Structure formats: C-alpha cells, structure tokens
Computed example of a mutant assay.
Amino acid sequence: MHFPSREQIAVLQRQYPRGTKVELLGMDDPQAPPTGTMGEVMGVDDAGQILVRWETGSSLSLIPGVDSFRIAEKGGQS
C-alpha cells in the first residue's frame, strides 16, 4: 500500500477541511452508502483517506483517486 507524504496529507486537509459537505457519486464497496448520499468530512487520516460521517449513519471513508465524490459545500478551516 502506498502512503502519501506529509505534504500530500496537508494538501488533502486544505482541500477537505472538517465540516465540508460531500456527495457520493460512486464507491466500489459492498458497505457503501447509496449514490447521491451526502456526508460531512470529519478529517483526513495519515493514509490520506477522507473520514466522512454519512447521512445514513455510516462512517465509511473516501479514498481520493479511487472513490468518486464531489464537494457540495466547503467547510471551515480546522
């Protein structure tokens, strides 16, 4: 598994600050929320995954470059 550098993590944290609203467009995971589900970014972990609390109650993370999603509303700076 490839882990991003500290600099890459910092970029992701700036792109997806805590509170950012995201919409799921597609995820290849049997536990994935339905397409179109909205979620709120809780943070970015050391592996570069975006931690999301989905409106369905799930907390499945997004993987940039693998999962398909869009920013619906930018959050504040953490």
Rank of each mutant, 00 (worst) to 15 (best):
Q15C: 10
D29S: 10
A10M: 11
S78A: 12
S78K: 05
G36C: 02
K74E: 02
Q8T: 12
L24G: 05
R14N: 10
D28W: 05
P30V: 11
S68K: 12
H2C: 09
A72H: 07
L24P: 01
E7I: 12
G48M: 12
I63M: 03
P33G: 05
T20Y: 03
V11W: 00
V44F: 00
P30T: 08
W54F: 13
R6F: 13
M38K: 11
D46K: 15
L25R: 15
R18E: 12
M42K: 13
K21P: 01
G48L: 04
G65S: 07
M42F: 08
R70I: 13
G57S: 09
I63K: 04
L12V: 08
F69Y: 13
P33K: 11
A72V: 15
S78P: 14
G26I: 14
T37Y: 01
G43D: 07
L62I: 10
M1G: 14
G76W: 03
D45Y: 06
P64V: 13
E40Q: 14
R53C: 06
Q49K: 13
G48D: 02
T20P: 01
I63G: 00
R70N: 09
M27Y: 14
S68I: 11
L60K: 05
G26K: 03
D28P: 00
L12W: 02
Q49Y: 04
L60T: 10
R70K: 14
G26E: 06
G48E: 07
L62V: 09
A47D: 10
